[in-house]
Simulated scan of single mutants.
Amino acid sequence: MGSTMPETLVTTALQRDLLAHAPAPGLFVYSNRGGQHCGDVYRTLLHEHGALRSWSRRGECYDNAQDKSLWSRRKTEVFELREWPVFADLADAQASVAEYFDYYWLKNNNSSG
C-alpha cells in the first residue's frame, strides 16, 4: 500500500506473495484492468509461477463480488469504528490493512473450525 499505485508497488506485492506462499501452478490471480496489472513485469511474474490472470468483464462489478465483499466488511468492521480522519498518516493506514488481513486470514484458516 502506498500513497500512489505505480506498477512497481503492484509487482513487488505480487512477487512477495508468490515467494511467501509458493502456490501450485494454475493459481488464479484476480486484478482489475488497471495499467499496473497489464505491464510486462506483472505478466512475467504470473507466467514464471504458472499463475493465470483473471479479470472481470468490462463494466461487470459482480465478477469480483468476493473481493468487493471483503473490502466492504473491512470498511464496516474497521473504518466505522474510527473517528475522521480515519488514518493519521500512510503508515497508520498500512498498519491497519496489514492487521486486518492478518486477522481475516487467521480467522478463515483456523483448522479448529
Rank of each mutant, 00 (worst) to 15 (best):
R73P: 05
A51W: 05
C38M: 04
P23K: 01
V10G: 00
E60F: 04
L52A: 10
W84E: 14
D89L: 03
N110Y: 09
C38S: 07
S3P: 12
F101R: 09
E60R: 13
E80R: 14
D40P: 06
T12A: 15
A91M: 01
T76W: 02
L90K: 04
A88K: 11
P6L: 05
T8S: 12
L19N: 12
A13K: 04
W71Y: 15
E99S: 14
A88E: 06
F79G: 15
W71L: 12
R16D: 09
Y42A: 01
W105T: 13
A24N: 04
A24H: 05
Q66Y: 12
P85L: 02
Q15R: 11
V86A: 09
R33P: 11
A13G: 07
S96G: 03
Y100G: 02
A98T: 15
H37A: 12
A93M: 12
A13V: 06
V29F: 08
R74Q: 09
N109E: 11
R58H: 10
C61D: 10
N32V: 04
L70E: 08
A20H: 02
G26K: 05
T11W: 04
R33M: 10
F101D: 08
Y42M: 03
E7L: 05
Y100F: 11
S56T: 02
D102V: 07
T11Q: 05
Y103Q: 13
S111C: 14
R53K: 10
N110S: 13
V41P: 02
A51E: 03
Y100M: 05
N109I: 11
C38L: 09
V41H: 07
D92M: 04
G50C: 06
P85S: 07
P25M: 00
A13H: 02
R43S: 08
C61E: 14
G26T: 08
W84C: 12
A91P: 05
A24E: 10
A93K: 12
Y100D: 10
S31E: 06
T76G: 03
R58C: 05
